[in-house]
Every structure is written in C-alpha cells, then in structure tokens.
Design a protein around this nucleic acid. Structure first.
Length: 750
DNA sequence: ATAGCTTGTCAT
DNA sequence: ATGACAAGCTAT
C-alpha cells in the first residue's frame, strides 16, 4: 500500500529515503496520521505555511480513495476516519505479516501526541537496535520493539497502561490523549471507561517485561545473561504471628512478627545485603509485601499504622504513601507529602479523614524536617490504598527506594487547616518500579511548586546533604556519614548468647526468560497466562480463568419478588479477583492483550530451548553449589540449611516468652516448617545455577546509555521552562551502582 | 460506610 | 512507666 516514491521518517526519526536524521525544521508532520516526513525527500512539497499546517501525507491522502475497503470509507467524514481507514487497509492487506502490520499501524499513529514530544535517546537506541541475531533475548526484544510500542510515541511504552480493549500505551501519552478530550482507544476506537481515563494504572507486568528486555539487550552485547533474583513471596519465611484473640477480630488487631533484617530501627537509607541474613540480598526496590505488617518485618517502614517513621530530634527514616491525606500529590520521581496530625482521634480512632486543627512541625513532622535539613535518604513505600496515584502498586505495599526531602513548608490544606508539606525527590541507585530504565536516578532540577507562593515556615537545606550524588563514582552515597544509631538493631539474635542460626534459604536464580514468564502469571491460576486480559485496574488474568470466575453470573440481576410487582433490574457487581474494583463493564467485552500474548509465547519458546541446552550443564553446576555451601556454612559458623525446623522453632519460642504463647507459636512453627520445606525444595524445572556468586561478583558494572529526558525533566520543561540541565551525560559509566557502592562507603555494621 | 480493635513507638 | 498517637484492617 505504500506510496511509490515517498517514504516517511522511521521510528528513529530517520528519513527512510535518504537515511539521514533531519533536524526538526526540515520535517513536516501529517495532519491526519501525525507521521513525520522529510521535506527534502518529498515529491510534492506544500508551498505555503498554511499548506504545511494542513498538510496530509501521501499515504493518508491516497488511502481513502484507493486502498481502504469501502466499508471503512463509508463510515463518516471527520478527519481521523481516514486514519481508521488506513489501519483497516493495513489489517486487510494479506501480503503483510502480523509484525509488519503492527509496524505500519504504528507508523500511521506515531505522532498522536501533538506538541513536541520528547523522544528518548535511549529508547530510540533500544527500539532500533534489535535487528541482528536470532537467539536469546533478541527475539524478545525484537518482539517488544516490533509490536509492543506505544502507538503514540512509537517507543517501548514508558510506564505502560493497558486499555480494556487490550492495547498498550505510555502513561504520559495516554494522559495526553485523554487530556485532549479523547475517550476512545487510539488503535481500535473502543471507548475508554471514564475511570480508566481519569485514573489510569500502570501495568507493572509490562514494566518488568520491558526492563528485562532492555537488560537482555545489554547482556547480548556483554557476555552471558545476568541472573535475576526472584523475590517470591513464598520464599519469605515466618509470617507475622497472630494471637488467638486477634484471629477472632481479624489480623489487623494483633500482629507482630520477627524483623528479618538486622538494621536498627533508626537506620537511614537502603537496607543492604549485609543486613539481610535471611536472603543475603537486602531490600530491593520494587519488593512488595502483602500488608504493612509484612512491610514492617522487612524493615522498610516500621510503624504499621503511622505514615512516618522518625524521631523529632534525630530525623525521619521512612514514609508511607497510603492515600490517607488528600493533599498528597504523587508524580513518581517526586511527590508532595503531607505531615501527620491535625486530626481528632478521640474515641480510640487510628485515623480520621477530617482535619480539625492545624498541623505543626513537631513529632514526626519535625523528624521529616530534620531529614530535610540534613539531606538524609528517606525510604519510601507506596501502598495500594493510594488510589489516586498511577504509581501506587495494585496490591500490597511496595518499596520504591530512597528520596530526599528538598524543601518543607506549611500551607492551608484542602480542608482549610494548615498542613505541613514536604517535597520528596527520588535519589536511588536503582530505577523506580514504574520505569523501564535500567539505571537509577541522577540529580535533577527541582520541580516548580506553585503552592510555595502561599507557603509559610519554608525550610530549605542550607548545608550540604549527607546523601548525595557522587559524579566520580556515578552513584548516590553518604557524603557525610549517617548519624550514629541510638538503638540496638533488632537482630534475630536469641539474646542469651547463643549464636543466631542463620536459616539460609536457597535463593532461586532464574533466567531472564523465566523471570519474565513469572511476571506474566495469571492472578487466578498462578500459571503463565494464556490469552492474557488486563482489567482497567491493571490486573492480569487468563481469559478462561477470568471468565470461569464469573461463570453463571449474569450482568443484570432480575429482581422478581413472587407475586409482587417486578422491580427494576439491577446491575450485578463483579469484583476484580485481585481488588475491590467492579469490572462488570469490562467483562462484557474483555479483549485479549495480543501484544502481551505474543511476547509470552516467544518467551515460552525460548525457555524451552534454554532448558534443553541446560540439561547437560546441570550436574556440573550442582557440584559447584555444593562446594559453595560448604564454605558459607563454615563462615557463618552455624549448622544452617538442613535444620530449618529446629531453628525456626527456637526463634519463635524466644521471641515470645509467655507459656501459653509458646504452645501457640510452636503449633504455628510447625505449619511454617511445612511451608518452608515445600519452598526450599527446588523446582525440578529450573536449574539452580551460579547461586550467591551472582550477587557479589555480578555487581552492576555495565555501560549504559543515559536517558537524557526523564519524567521530572519533562514535567518541569512543560510547567516552567527550566532546562533539565545536569542530566545530559551520555555513555556514562555506571560502575558500582547501588548496593555495592553503598556498602563500601558505609561499612559500619548495624 | 464505619466502628472498634492490637500493637509499637514517641515523648513525657 | 505511662499516655497519646498512628496513612491498618476486618467484621458489621
């Protein structure tokens, strides 16, 4: 269907005729499909400026008349109908493969976002550089870059969202589209539910998929794939115990549990591998727990109700974003946080939505101010209860890395009473869970905060921050040592002098494709999805599982009371199996996410191939593992490993001194043992390779292309024309990012 | 929607 | 030690 002599610019902005990347002023954009074309290479150029503004590309102008099926042409006269016609033409072209079709579609739709979009350099590189090679992750990447792109910007979706009709877009592109008043899918024109339009949720499975694909690519260039450590919930031992009384009234009422990490409660910054005797990997960005209590057990955020962990004379170590304060404003890499208090909690309330007095900089609010002045890193967890933020997890509580508080002030809150406000900006060495970036944050200019105009009591940091970016090392670290801990670490230590028994659990290392597949599990059957569906609340299921879950249910409840008059039919509420959202509307016409499906299928093929190849290595690797085990057991000076049962029981008993409690916990410990044994059994399907070595030796020492624009930069540019400035580094070497570097600079033990 | 609870931590 | 407080959680 392509025009004989004319060709547009490709996804990289390069003219497909002369192969150069023309500057913006030499490009012209089609008013219909918004595809960029190289002016110099066009056979018929627009003559006037007005012409240029109304210019329609050769593809679009010729399509309606000559190529589109008649049904499509007949359907209307508004301009974008020719776009639909074009898409239909592509779809009906039997000479094209599915991949080709997808590419053509994207080409057509490429520029849907009007004003100068920010084509990320790095993305471009990834999207374009997958042509060679057929083995390993390249297939996945090819798939991802070929058919997975956001139809607006033609890049791999950044912060991907999925429409009920099964199409994937960048969050920002989607928001822009919706912001223009559009309420239909840009690909298929299915209407977008208003809830999705006003509150799109990031499809975290896709985030992982894209990031992994990028990793796969960088690995393809530099040696064997790096192992990826799974953070499976089942691998997490020792659920918080529940007392009999609490069981009656619900878990919320009485829970505690072992703290698994060995950091003191007033520890600042990331929780490193050295403080994680359970798994030896520390608390990783993106790790998600079932609830606040489980989050507490891993030390990310200790208070199980309060939003702020901190001491007014010392500083704040962590905060939770849980949607409890309506003034909060979440932009992912930065957010505005509201202090606590100002509420009437009489009557034994935990919380109260209405403010009844001003907040002050005291207690935990003051603690946050101290962290602001000192420039301490503050751990941030986001809870699924934060419903307004696209960055909140769909379920549970997630660790999102460390942020710095750059400013704080007071202002009248939405309810009229003064609230304390804090500007948090991310400064973590690991990328945030919602980006497909491979590297963490870089120093970035502060966003323009409008409300500062009406702010009082503004506090800014005067002295250099304790936690800052080291240009030389290329990572964030303690420039000024953190304050000495004033508390004892909550060790797993028995306290009576006996050596802590470290229960070492086998950390399962998965191949890239395995890991990816894991991300594509149906939330109902927990197997890799077949015919994946994504609900508007961003949960993924097999089509059959979701349909089975509502089998026999009708969308409408007939309310016939015998004999009496018939009541009006009532809509049946159908709750998403993973969250309380009503998805009945979605269920009337759920569409398979075909892009996701093809990625899954490709991964399955690959995993199968890899398994076949791995069989021969298996024995050798097993021997390796045994050897390492020996060494480590000596080092820890404990029996470790085999007697999980014994140590579990002892620890449990020690944690709870009272007699009857002992009975109770013992019984539970046994249950736990069953569970952990089941987990410890290595899955027969997966070869346990390279174990712990991976953690230490495989420190991220990769060359990465620095993405020049990040969302903050973009936001700022839009809002107040500040240059993103200092983040231009290209080909920056990021050796010793994250954990390792942190460990070096902060060698004190907790 | 809301009442009402455990528990851990802060500050006194 | 003691009281106040906390952005959770479940049953009603």
């Amino acid at each position: 269907m392509a025009h004989d002599s004319d060709l547009p610019c490709d996804g990289d902005g390069r003219c497909m005729i002369c192969k150069i990347n023309p500057p913006e002023e030499e490009k012209i954009t089609c008013k219909t499909c918004v595809t960029p074309w190289h002016l110099d290479c066009l056979s018929a150029r627009p003559q006037t400026l007005a012409d240029a503004a109304q210019w329609e590309c050769p593809d679009c102008s010729s399509l309606v008349s000559s190529h589109a099926p008649p049904s499509a042409v007949a359907s209307g006269s508004e301009p974008s109908d020719s776009l639909i016609a074009a898409i239909r033409a592509i779809e009906s072209d039997a000479s094209l493969s599915d991949l080709e079709k997808a590419k053509r579609r994207q080409k057509l739709l490429s520029g849907g976002s009007d004003d100068g979009d920010e084509p990320a350099e790095e993305k471009k590189e990834v999207a374009g550089g997958s042509s060679s090679g057929s083995g390993g992750g390249n297939d996945v990447l090819k798939l991802l870059s070929g058919s997975f792109n956001c139809s607006f910007c033609m890049q791999l979706p950044e912060r991907p969202v999925t429409t009920p009709c099964g199409h994937n877009f960048c969050l920002k592109c989607f928001e822009k589209w919706v912001g223009q008043g559009k309420r239909t899918c840009a690909i298929c024109r299915t209407s977008i539910p208003s809830k999705m339009a006003s509150n799109p949720r990031i499809n975290s499975s896709l985030v992982i998929a894209i990031r992994m694909a990028k990793m796969t690519k960088s690995n393809a260039a530099s040696g064997p794939p790096k192992p990826y450590y799974s953070v499976l919930n089942q691998n997490k031992p020792d659920k918080a115990y529940t007392t009999e009384r609490a069981k009656k009234t619900g878990k919320a009422n009485a829970c505690s549990g072992k703290i698994f990490v060995t950091v003191p409660p007033d520890h600042f910054g990331p929780i490193l591998a050295e403080n994680d005797p359970e798994r030896g990997m520390g608390v990783l960005v993106g790790e998600t727990w079932e609830d606040r209590l489980e989050c507490r057990q891993w030390g990310a955020h200790l208070p199980h109700v309060a939003g702020i962990c901190g001491q007014s004379d010392y500083g704040a170590q962590s905060v939770a974003l849980s949607g409890g304060y309506e003034d909060d404003e979440d932009h992912g890499e930065w957010f505005l946080y509201t202090g606590s208090g100002g509420r009437d909690l009489s009557g034994n309330k935990r919380t109260n939505k209405t403010q009844s007095f001003d907040q002050k900089f005291d207690k935990s609010n003051e603690a946050l101010r101290v962290s602001c002045k000192k420039g301490y890193p503050v751990r941030v967890v986001r809870s699924h209860k934060e419903k307004r933020s696209a960055y909140a997890p769909e379920t549970g509580v997630r660790y999102d890395g460390v942020y710095r508080i750059e400013k704080c002030w007071r202002k009248p809150g939405i309810q009229g009473f003064k609230v304390c406000r804090y500007l948090f900006v991310r400064c973590d060495n690991d990328p945030a869970p919602w980006t497909s970036d491979e590297i963490g944050d870089r120093p970035r200019p502060l966003p323009n905060i409008k409300e500062l105009k009406e702010a009082t009591d503004v506090t800014e940091r005067k002295s250099p921050p304790s936690w800052d970016y080291d240009e030389e090392k290329g990572c964030w670290l303690w420039k000024i040592p953190p304050p000495d801990s004033r508390k004892r670490a909550s060790t797993v230590d028995a306290g009576d002098g006996t050596q802590t028994k470290t229960v070492r659990r086998k950390t399962h290392i998965m191949s890239v494709s395995e890991r990816l597949l894991k991300e594509f599990c149906c939330l109902i059957c927990h197997k890799v999805m077949t015919q994946p569906l994504t609900t508007p609340c961003a949960h993924n299921f097999c089509k059959s599982c979701l349909q089975d879950a509502f089998a026999g249910q009708t969308f409408i409840k007939e309310r016939n009371c015998e004999g009496r008059r018939t009541l009006r039919a009532q809509k049946n509420v159908m709750k998403c199996p993973s969250c309380p959202n009503d998805i009945s509307e979605y269920l009337q016409n759920p569409q398979v996410n075909r892009e996701l499906m093809s990625v899954i299928e490709s991964l399955q093929r690959q995993t199968k191939e890899m398994e076949e190849n791995a069989v021969t290595e298996e024995e050798m690797l097993d021997a390796d593992v045994a050897e390492e085990d020996k060494v480590e057991v000596q080092a820890v000076n404990s029996e470790a490993n085999e007697d999980i049962k014994e140590s579990d029981e002892e620890e449990k008993a020690d944690a709870k001194p009272s007699l009857e409690a002992n009975e109770e916990t013992k019984a539970e410990a046994n249950e736990d043992v069953k569970e952990s044994e089941a987990v410890a059994k290595p899955s027969p399907k997966v070869s346990k390779k390279r174990k712990a070595k991976g953690v230490t030796d495989n420190a991220p020492n990769k060359k990465v292309h620095q993405e020049t624009d990040n969302m903050i930069g973009a936001d700022i540019n839009k809002d107040e024309t500040v240059n993103p400035g200092p983040m231009e580094a290209e080909d920056m070497k990021v050796g010793e990012v994250g954990k390792d570097a942190g460990a070096k600079t902060r060698s004190r033990k907790g």
